[in-house]
């Protein structure tokens, strides 16, 4: 298990490096549909190692460039998810009376809703674009974090040092933010690596369904243009494979990393997962 975790981290580091250094070797003129001069929908060749798309752009460049937006939407959506989930979970765990119960009811309702139809509806109403996709992902995936944080908050608040803090005059806010939160965060951050994986998948799915910004390049939008442009009937496998494999590798990378760290923190789970 340890080794697969290292693989995961390695893959993620490679993609992060690619995404960060992309502007150094890919210019606007290689991504602009009007200015490129490559052959249209050509299979891989020496000049275009992964072939070209419908406008004559290099697929290799597009995949590397696409990693920037795909990864950043995934990460921002995860940050929002964690923020929302932690806030709800912390409040629900701390105020165990009516407020806590009400919050958990809301969480349960959201769990019961199918996430993709909800995300589709939200981003369709909010309009095309990265922002609305990000919001839709956060709104549909915060529940898992909320449950985790609530359970952890209950466990932490049962410990004696919270009683001590209260005896010293700590108010609700201080107990939650200074004592409970720091104890809950490590586990939340671990589980968030798994959230990134599903956020990237959701981003690709929503963009494929046509909810993304039509002008930007992401892995999801590449697949969407490929599909609507007839790459499937043309049998243009070189157009379809790279973005999909990139998604697969990144999602797998986050999943393996998350699981490995989870096992480090909770060795008793090793046998089960």
């Amino acid at each position: 298990m340890k080794r697969s975790g290292l693989w995961g981290i390695g893959v993620l580091a490679a993609f992060a490096l690619l995404a960060l250094t992309a502007p150094l070797h890919i210019g606007d003129d290689q991504l602009d549909v009007v200015r490129v001069d490559g052959p249209r929908l050509a299979p891989p060749s020496a000049a275009y190692p992964l072939g070209t798309d419908l406008a004559g752009r290099s697929i290799l460049h597009l995949v590397i460039w696409g990693s920037r937006e795909s990864l950043s939407i995934g990460l921002i959506a995860t940050a929002l998810t964690v923020l929302l989930g932690t806030a709800v979970g912390l409040l629900a765990g701390h105020y165990q009376g009516r407020i806590g119960q009400a919050l958990m009811h809301v969480t349960d309702w959201f769990i019961a809703l199918p996430s993709l139809p909800l995300a589709i509806s939200l981003s369709a109403v909010l309009g095309q674009g990265a922002a609305s996709i990000t919001i839709a992902i956060a709104v549909t995936s915060w529940t898992a974090t909320a449950r985790l944080v609530r359970a952890q908050t209950l466990a932490v608040e049962a410990r004696p040092f919270i009683e001590r803090a209260r005896a010293l005059g700590a108010g609700n806010r201080q107990v939650m933010l200074r004592h409970v939160l720091p104890n809950v965060m490590p586990l939340v951050l671990v589980s968030s690596t798994l959230t990134v994986a599903s956020a990237i998948l959701s981003e690709a799915t929503l963009t494929f369904l046509g909810l993304g910004d039509p002008t930007s390049v992401t892995w999801g939008s590449m697949l969407q243009t490929a599909f609507s442009g007839g790459a499937v009937t043309a049998g243009a496998w070189w157009y379809l494979m790279p973005p999909g494999l990139a998604i697969l590798l990144v999602v797998l990378g986050f999943t393996l990393t998350g699981r490995a760290v989870e096992h480090l923190l909770n060795p008793r789970m090793v046998q089960h997962a």
């Binding site: 998948l201 799915t205 599909f227 499937v232 496998w237 999909g244």
Partner: peptide, 20 residues
């Protein structure tokens, strides 16, 4: 685990190309 990490629609397109 690998198949779970694959976007459904992408797998669909790949199968379409393979078995067209």
């Amino acid at each position: 685990l690998t198949l779970w990490s694959v976007p459904t629609f992408w797998l669909g397109m790949i199968l379409l190309v393979l078995f067209s």
